[in-house]
Design a protein around this nucleic acid. Structure first.
Lengths: 213, 213
DNA sequence: TAAAAATTGTAAGAAATTTTTCAAATGTTG
DNA sequence: CAACATTTGAAAAATTTCTTACAATTTTTA
């Protein structure tokens, strides 16, 4: 359980519930009906409707028997839960293939995320453009973080410099590290670390393909 | 629990355990000592040593009191568990920013994954090179899948064509879909689907930053 | 309007996972 | 070599998460 201070509702979410709530959010975004039943969400996501109802029961929302849940309300609750209504300015460190792809990613807007800068150490890359953004040297980091009130940084540098970059970011006031490097990073307590190592996904696939169906 | 047929050991893994085992694998890859204790693994990954021991107890390996676990053996067990010793030829569909970045990703080799082709529909892109690979039209799909015995395909196309591409891939004999599109995909039973939607990671960050630390 | 059907909400029970505890084994030190 | 410290391994307890079961509510239909 993740505890939460403010009142209103219990506001404690089992971690697995939180993961599923993200899926509901993604699903509902593409839905253009007004109402949806737990049964339908369940079928689409291959889980049980009871599970869906239980998850949703954590939110400040209530469904209508025989009709289902009001999708805009559900989306509203989930937006609030995930802080989507507040736009976060984020920065990307590392303008290689992954960093550039991330900088151009179209999906950020609808979840309240805006990439305000991309950094690199390589003087060949500095000054070139990735989409609309000019690649900046790390010496501009402090200025940008202050100016745009950046709390989140994505790390897209090679494994060997990931820790170094992390330390620098934390020093400059970054509060959350979104790590795309295949490295185990260390952060001071109070700093959030989210690992996005893509090899994990394919390890699951390989495991399942070989060991099961 | 994920059940498994072949004997030797119980070979059933709680899903959370499996996730942590991947982390151990990543951690141990960068380690060059001979032995490591549950305590050290735990400290690095910010979990408890008991948890680590319990996880490792699922494997066909046993630690030495006062010394710890033999790292090469542990790596060997984990490699086998995740099928890393067997190389999988995978293909990428979608030669945009993300697809290209993925095709150039260096980390695949050490987990037994090789990208053998990248596809796109856009005639502007077909024939251009991404690293060493020429972008191919989807009409070449069948040939490549057969020729390289491809079981896994990564989907890096826009949301709106993701389902269509999925259907095509399944039809051509692909057994596992690694989905990078921000879409809820449907696959026939027996086909594995692994979602890698990167927005999920940052939703977690936004939630935690606002609601807690 | 009353009965029927569909759907939510929740409490209780079951299952899965994590934490606690502690005995057994193996090095290490005096 | 004996006492001690460290570390594993495994059983038991506690906690968390999921499933089951069913009552309550609302719409539909006759």
């Amino acid at each position: 359980m993740l505890k939460n201070h403010i009142g209103r509702k219990p506001l404690m979410f089992p971690k697995p519930t939180l993961e599923r709530l993200k899926l509901y959010y993604a699903l509902l975004l593409t839905e253009n009906k007004d109402y949806i039943s737990s049964d339908e969400i369940a079928k689409r996501l291959k889980i049980t409707p009871e599970q869906v109802r239980k998850d949703i029961s954590h939110l400040n929302i209530t469904g209508k028997p025989k009709v289902g849940y009001h999708i805009p309300s559900l989306l509203g609750e989930l937006s609030e839960l995930f802080g989507i209504s507040v736009t976060d300015n984020i920065i990307i460190v590392g303008a290689g293939g992954l960093g550039s792809a991330l900088a151009r990613y179209k999906g950020f807007e609808k979840i309240g995320v805006k990439v305000v800068a991309i950094f690199d150490n390589d003087s060949e890359k500095i000054g070139t453009f990735v989409g609309e953004l000019m690649v900046l040297p790390l010496s501009d980091l402090q200025r940008v973080v202050k100016r745009f009130k950046v709390r989140i940084a994505a790390i897209c540098v090679p494994e060997e410099s990931a820790q170094e970059v992390t330390d620098l970011l934390v020093e400059k006031g970054i509060k959350a590290i979104w790590n795309f490097a295949p490295a185990i990073l260390h952060v001071p307590s109070g700093i959030l670390l989210e690992n996005e190592d893509i090899t994990r996904g394919i390890l699951s696939i390989k495991h399942m393909l070989d060991k099961k169906g």
